[in-house]
Write a protein that binds this DNA or RNA. Structure first.
Length: 286
DNA sequence: ACGCAGGCACTAC
DNA sequence: GTAGTGCCTGCG
C-alpha cells in the first residue's frame, strides 16, 4: 500500500463505540467537535470522528494513527474478552448495552491526577477541573485542523513547581487540592516511580499507588485498570456496589464489607473483571 | 482480668 | 473517596 493511499484512509475500528467510550467516565477532557471529538493524547492534539466501523483521525499521519489506535485500545480482542464474562442476567444486559465500549489506555500521571481529583465529584465537575488545570499549568499545543489552542495535562513537575495547594484550590479542587499537590510533589521527587511500576505485579503497583496522598483502594484500582492495563482490577464505587448487592446478593441481611465484595469480584469476574466492571458501571448509570 | 490487633463507624477534608 | 480518630470486640 502506498504512503498516500494509507494516509487517505480512516482507521478500521470494528466493534467500537467512540461516543460511549468517551462518555463512560474514564477520561474527561474530550470536547464535541462537529460529529466528532477534539482532545489531546499525551501532548498530541487529535480530532477523531467515527463513521460506522471507520475512525477518521486528524491529523492522519502514521504516528498519530498509531497513538489513536493504542489510546482507544482498538487492538483489544473484545469478543475474546466477552467470552470470559460470567453468564448471568446482569452481565448479559450490561454487555448488550455496552458492546463496543473499550478501556482507554491513559498516560500514567494524567490518570493518577485525574482520579485523585475525581473523589466524590460529578463527571461535569471533574471535566471542568481537568480543563482548568490544563489551561493554567499544561503545555499549549495548536490543533492543526482549526488553529485553536489545546492543552496537554500538566506534568507532575509543573504542578509541583508552579502551583501550590492554595493555587490548586483556585482551580475548584476543594479538599482535593492538598492531595493532588502532595501527589505531584511525590511523583516529581521520584518517591513513587510510575514508569518503573509498569514492570511490577498488580499487588506491588497497587500498594505503591496507595502511598500517594488521595489514592486509596478505589482510585488505585481505577489507575491499575485505565493506565496500567491490569484488566483484572475492579474499582468498587457506590454505583458498582449497588449493582453488586442488588444483582448478586439480593436481600441479604447484613451487608457485605468492601473487602468481602472485592474478594468476590476477583474470583467471580475473572481476568477481565475490570472490563466487566466498566460495562456494569456504564449500564447502571444509563 | 487486662491489653493489643483489627474491624467498623464516624467525620473532616 | 480518602484518611485520621476513637470505640468495640475477640483472642490470649
Amino acid at each position: 500500500m502506498s504512503r498516500n493511499a494509507q494516509r487517505a484512509e480512516p482507521l478500521p475500528a470494528p466493534l467500537f463505540n467512540l461516543p460511549m467510550t468517551l462518555a463512560s467516565g474514564q477520561v474527561f477532557h474530550w470536547l464535541p467537535d462537529g460529529n466528532g471529538f477534539a482532545g489531546v493524547i499525551g501532548d498530541r492534539p487529535v480530532r477523531v470522528e467515527q463513521q460506522g466501523e471507520c475512525l477518521w483521525v486528524t491529523p492522519n499521519d502514521a504516528t498519530t494513527r498509531e497513538e489513536v489506535c493504542r489510546y482507544f485500545a482498538l487492538d483489544h480482542p473484545l469478543e475474546t474478552i466477552y467470552a470470559t464474562f460470567p453468564d448471568d442476567p446482569a452481565m448479559r444486559e450490561a454487555l448488550a448495552f455496552c458492546r463496543g465500549l473499550r478501556l482507554i489506555r491513559q498516560p500514567l500521571w494524567e490518570c493518577v491526577a485525574t482520579f485523585i481529583t475525581s473523589a466524590m465529584k460529578q463527571v461535569k465537575h471533574i471535566s471542568q477541573i481537568s480543563h482548568t488545570l490544563r489551561q493554567r499549568y499544561g503545555r499549549p499545543v495548536t490543533a492543526p485542523w482549526s488553529g485553536q489552542t489545546l492543552y496537554a495535562y500538566p506534568a507532575p513537575e509543573a504542578l509541583a513547581e508552579q502551583a501550590s495547594e492554595a493555587a490548586l484550590r483556585e482551580c475548584g479542587l476543594g479538599f482535593r487540592a492538598g492531595k493532588l499537590y502532595g501527589a505531584a510533589v511525590a511523583v516529581a521527587r521520584g518517591e513513587v516511580d510510575l514508569q518503573a511500576l509498569e514492570h511490577e505485579p498488580d499487588d506491588v503497583v497497587f500498594k505503591a499507588l496507595c502511598r500517594l496522598p488521595g489514592v486509596g483502594p478505589k482510585i488505585a484500582h481505577c489507575i491499575l485498570l485505565f493506565a496500567y492495563g491490569r484488566y483484572a482490577a475492579f474499582p468498587i464505587d457506590v454505583w458498582i456496589e449497588r449493582v453488586l448487592r442488588h444483582h448478586y446478593f439480593p436481600r441479604r441481611r447484613k451487608a457485605l464489607t468492601l473487602p468481602q465484595l472485592q474478594r468476590f469480584v476477583a474470583q467471580y469476574f475473572g481476568p477481565y473483571g475490570g472490563y466487566a466492571q466498566q460495562y456494569l458501571f456504564h449500564h447502571a448509570r444509563n
